[in-house]
Amino acid sequence: MHSVSDGRVTDADLLDALSVPARQGDYPRDSRAFVRIDTSLRVYWHTLFDICPALLELSGPDGLAIFRPFMAWAHEHKLSLNWTYYLWVDVWLQQSSFREQVASELRYALVGASAARWATGDRSQFQGIVLGCSDLPDLVCGWKTASLGGGREIERIELEAALPAPDGPFGYFLVSGRSLDDGFPGWLTIPR
Protein backbone atom coordinates (compact mmCIF):
# COMPACT_ATOMS: atom_id res chain seq x y z
CA MET A 1 0.00 0.00 0.00
CA HIS A 2 1.24 3.47 -0.85
CA SER A 3 1.96 5.72 2.08
CA VAL A 4 0.39 9.02 1.17
CA SER A 5 -0.18 10.63 4.52
CA ASP A 6 3.25 12.20 4.85
CA GLY A 7 4.46 13.05 1.36
CA ARG A 8 3.22 15.17 -1.47
CA VAL A 9 0.91 13.27 -3.85
CA THR A 10 -0.09 14.70 -7.20
CA ASP A 11 -2.66 13.69 -9.78
CA ALA A 12 0.18 12.50 -11.97
CA ASP A 13 1.13 9.99 -9.25
CA LEU A 14 -2.38 8.49 -9.41
CA LEU A 15 -2.80 8.21 -13.18
CA ASP A 16 -2.32 4.45 -13.31
CA ALA A 17 -5.12 3.98 -10.79
CA LEU A 18 -7.76 6.40 -12.08
CA SER A 19 -9.44 3.79 -14.28
CA VAL A 20 -8.49 0.59 -12.48
CA PRO A 21 -10.76 -0.31 -9.53
CA ALA A 22 -8.30 -2.86 -8.19
CA ARG A 23 -5.66 -0.17 -7.76
CA GLN A 24 -7.83 1.91 -5.44
CA GLY A 25 -6.95 -0.45 -2.59
CA ASP A 26 -3.30 0.57 -2.93
CA TYR A 27 -4.13 3.74 -1.01
CA PRO A 28 -5.36 4.20 2.57
CA ARG A 29 -9.13 4.36 2.82
CA ASP A 30 -9.02 7.72 4.60
CA SER A 31 -6.66 9.42 2.15
CA ARG A 32 -7.39 12.07 -0.44
CA ALA A 33 -5.81 9.77 -3.03
CA PHE A 34 -8.36 7.04 -2.31
CA VAL A 35 -11.26 9.47 -2.68
CA ARG A 36 -9.70 11.04 -5.81
CA ILE A 37 -9.55 7.61 -7.45
CA ASP A 38 -13.09 6.84 -6.30
CA THR A 39 -14.32 10.09 -7.85
CA SER A 40 -12.69 9.16 -11.15
CA LEU A 41 -14.10 5.62 -11.11
CA ARG A 42 -17.60 6.90 -10.40
CA VAL A 43 -17.54 8.89 -13.64
CA TYR A 44 -16.77 5.71 -15.59
CA TRP A 45 -19.60 4.02 -13.68
CA HIS A 46 -22.11 6.76 -14.45
CA THR A 47 -20.98 6.96 -18.07
CA LEU A 48 -21.99 3.33 -18.41
CA PHE A 49 -25.03 2.82 -16.18
CA ASP A 50 -26.70 6.22 -16.56
CA ILE A 51 -26.74 5.71 -20.31
CA CYS A 52 -27.66 2.00 -20.25
CA PRO A 53 -29.62 1.52 -16.98
CA ALA A 54 -30.92 -1.85 -18.17
CA LEU A 55 -27.47 -3.21 -17.29
CA LEU A 56 -28.38 -2.79 -13.63
CA GLU A 57 -31.14 -5.38 -14.06
CA LEU A 58 -28.38 -7.90 -14.78
CA SER A 59 -25.82 -6.78 -12.25
CA GLY A 60 -27.87 -5.61 -9.30
CA PRO A 61 -28.36 -1.98 -8.29
CA ASP A 62 -24.73 -1.16 -7.56
CA GLY A 63 -23.60 -2.41 -10.97
CA LEU A 64 -20.40 -3.80 -9.50
CA ALA A 65 -20.87 -7.36 -10.77
CA ILE A 66 -20.41 -5.91 -14.25
CA PHE A 67 -18.32 -2.82 -13.58
CA ARG A 68 -15.41 -4.24 -11.66
CA PRO A 69 -14.69 -7.29 -13.84
CA PHE A 70 -15.26 -5.31 -17.02
CA MET A 71 -12.84 -2.56 -15.95
CA ALA A 72 -10.24 -5.18 -14.99
CA TRP A 73 -10.68 -6.85 -18.39
CA ALA A 74 -10.47 -3.46 -20.16
CA HIS A 75 -7.22 -2.75 -18.31
CA GLU A 76 -5.82 -6.17 -19.19
CA HIS A 77 -6.65 -5.66 -22.87
CA LYS A 78 -5.47 -2.02 -22.89
CA LEU A 79 -8.80 -0.70 -24.14
CA SER A 80 -9.00 3.06 -24.64
CA LEU A 81 -12.56 3.39 -23.28
CA ASN A 82 -13.15 6.09 -25.88
CA TRP A 83 -16.38 6.11 -27.94
CA THR A 84 -16.10 2.33 -28.22
CA TYR A 85 -16.58 1.89 -24.44
CA TYR A 86 -20.09 0.41 -24.75
CA LEU A 87 -19.16 -1.87 -27.65
CA TRP A 88 -16.45 -3.48 -25.55
CA VAL A 89 -18.91 -3.87 -22.68
CA ASP A 90 -21.05 -5.87 -25.09
CA VAL A 91 -18.04 -7.94 -26.14
CA TRP A 92 -17.29 -8.65 -22.49
CA LEU A 93 -20.92 -9.51 -21.70
CA GLN A 94 -20.98 -12.02 -24.55
CA GLN A 95 -18.15 -13.94 -22.95
CA SER A 96 -19.40 -13.55 -19.37
CA SER A 97 -21.88 -15.48 -17.24
CA PHE A 98 -24.45 -12.80 -18.14
CA ARG A 99 -24.45 -13.84 -21.79
CA GLU A 100 -27.79 -15.66 -21.81
CA GLN A 101 -29.51 -12.73 -20.06
CA VAL A 102 -28.46 -10.04 -22.51
CA ALA A 103 -31.45 -9.24 -24.71
CA SER A 104 -31.06 -7.82 -28.20
CA GLU A 105 -32.60 -4.53 -27.13
CA LEU A 106 -29.91 -4.05 -24.50
CA ARG A 107 -27.26 -4.83 -27.06
CA TYR A 108 -28.71 -2.24 -29.44
CA ALA A 109 -28.78 0.23 -26.55
CA LEU A 110 -25.06 -0.33 -26.05
CA VAL A 111 -24.34 0.09 -29.75
CA GLY A 112 -26.49 3.25 -29.81
CA ALA A 113 -24.61 4.61 -26.80
CA SER A 114 -21.30 4.20 -28.61
CA ALA A 115 -22.72 5.85 -31.73
CA ALA A 116 -23.94 8.75 -29.57
CA ARG A 117 -20.59 9.11 -27.86
CA TRP A 118 -18.86 9.22 -31.24
CA ALA A 119 -21.35 11.82 -32.50
CA THR A 120 -20.79 14.13 -29.53
CA GLY A 121 -17.07 13.58 -29.08
CA ASP A 122 -15.55 13.20 -32.53
CA ARG A 123 -13.90 16.37 -33.85
CA SER A 124 -13.21 15.25 -37.42
CA GLN A 125 -15.14 16.52 -40.44
CA PHE A 126 -17.19 13.32 -40.70
CA GLN A 127 -20.88 13.81 -40.03
CA GLY A 128 -21.95 10.32 -39.11
CA ILE A 129 -20.92 6.85 -38.08
CA VAL A 130 -22.51 3.53 -38.99
CA LEU A 131 -22.04 0.55 -36.69
CA GLY A 132 -22.69 -3.05 -37.54
CA CYS A 133 -22.54 -6.12 -35.33
CA SER A 134 -21.59 -9.59 -36.52
CA ASP A 135 -24.64 -11.21 -34.88
CA LEU A 136 -27.27 -8.45 -34.89
CA PRO A 137 -29.17 -7.70 -38.10
CA ASP A 138 -29.76 -3.93 -37.87
CA LEU A 139 -27.32 -1.08 -38.37
CA VAL A 140 -27.03 1.77 -35.87
CA CYS A 141 -26.11 5.26 -37.09
CA GLY A 142 -24.99 8.26 -35.07
CA TRP A 143 -25.22 11.76 -36.56
CA LYS A 144 -23.58 14.89 -35.21
CA THR A 145 -25.76 17.85 -34.36
CA ALA A 146 -26.77 19.82 -37.46
CA SER A 147 -28.16 22.92 -35.75
CA LEU A 148 -27.26 25.15 -32.83
CA GLY A 149 -30.41 24.19 -30.94
CA GLY A 150 -30.30 20.52 -31.86
CA GLY A 151 -28.41 17.49 -30.66
CA ARG A 152 -26.89 14.28 -31.94
CA GLU A 153 -29.30 11.80 -33.49
CA ILE A 154 -29.23 8.03 -33.29
CA GLU A 155 -30.94 5.93 -35.91
CA ARG A 156 -31.49 2.19 -36.15
CA ILE A 157 -31.80 0.89 -39.70
CA GLU A 158 -33.39 -2.40 -40.65
CA LEU A 159 -31.82 -3.68 -43.86
CA GLU A 160 -33.69 -5.39 -46.68
CA ALA A 161 -30.54 -7.24 -47.67
CA ALA A 162 -27.84 -7.98 -45.12
CA LEU A 163 -24.38 -6.46 -45.49
CA PRO A 164 -21.33 -8.69 -45.17
CA ALA A 165 -20.59 -9.30 -41.49
CA PRO A 166 -17.62 -7.43 -40.03
CA ASP A 167 -14.54 -9.54 -39.30
CA GLY A 168 -14.70 -8.86 -35.57
CA PRO A 169 -17.66 -8.52 -33.23
CA PHE A 170 -18.32 -5.00 -34.57
CA GLY A 171 -17.41 -2.94 -37.58
CA TYR A 172 -17.93 0.69 -38.47
CA PHE A 173 -17.62 3.20 -41.25
CA LEU A 174 -17.74 6.98 -41.29
CA VAL A 175 -19.98 9.15 -43.43
CA SER A 176 -19.04 12.56 -44.84
CA GLY A 177 -22.56 13.76 -45.63
CA ARG A 178 -25.88 13.51 -43.85
CA SER A 179 -27.10 10.39 -45.65
CA LEU A 180 -26.04 6.89 -46.60
CA ASP A 181 -26.43 7.54 -50.33
CA ASP A 182 -22.78 6.78 -51.04
CA GLY A 183 -23.34 3.14 -50.18
CA PHE A 184 -21.34 0.67 -48.16
CA PRO A 185 -17.55 1.28 -48.22
CA GLY A 186 -16.67 -1.82 -46.16
CA TRP A 187 -16.18 -2.28 -42.44
CA LEU A 188 -13.36 -0.81 -40.39
CA THR A 189 -12.27 -2.64 -37.27
CA ILE A 190 -13.31 -0.86 -34.08
CA PRO A 191 -10.34 0.66 -32.26
CA ARG A 192 -9.33 -0.76 -28.93
Binding site: T10, D11, L15, D16, L18, S40, L79, N82, Y85
Partner: peptide
Protein backbone atom coordinates in the same frame (compact mmCIF):
# COMPACT_ATOMS: atom_id res chain seq x y z
CA UNK B 1 -5.45 19.05 -18.42
CA UNK B 2 -4.81 15.40 -19.14
CA UNK B 3 -7.56 13.82 -21.21
CA UNK B 4 -5.93 10.41 -21.56
CA UNK B 5 -3.38 8.30 -19.80
CA UNK B 6 -1.50 5.46 -21.42
CA UNK B 7 -3.98 5.53 -24.30
CA UNK B 8 -7.01 5.37 -22.03
CA UNK B 9 -9.62 8.09 -21.90
CA UNK B 10 -9.96 9.80 -18.53
CA UNK B 11 -13.62 10.57 -17.92
CA UNK B 12 -12.69 12.76 -14.96
CA UNK B 13 -9.89 14.87 -16.41
CA UNK B 14 -6.59 14.79 -14.56
CA UNK B 15 -4.19 17.55 -13.60
CA UNK B 16 -0.91 17.85 -15.45
CA UNK B 17 2.50 17.85 -13.77
CA UNK B 18 3.07 21.60 -13.89
CA UNK B 19 6.83 21.26 -13.52
CA UNK B 20 7.66 18.08 -15.41
Amino acid sequence: ARFTHDGRQLYHLAEIDYIG
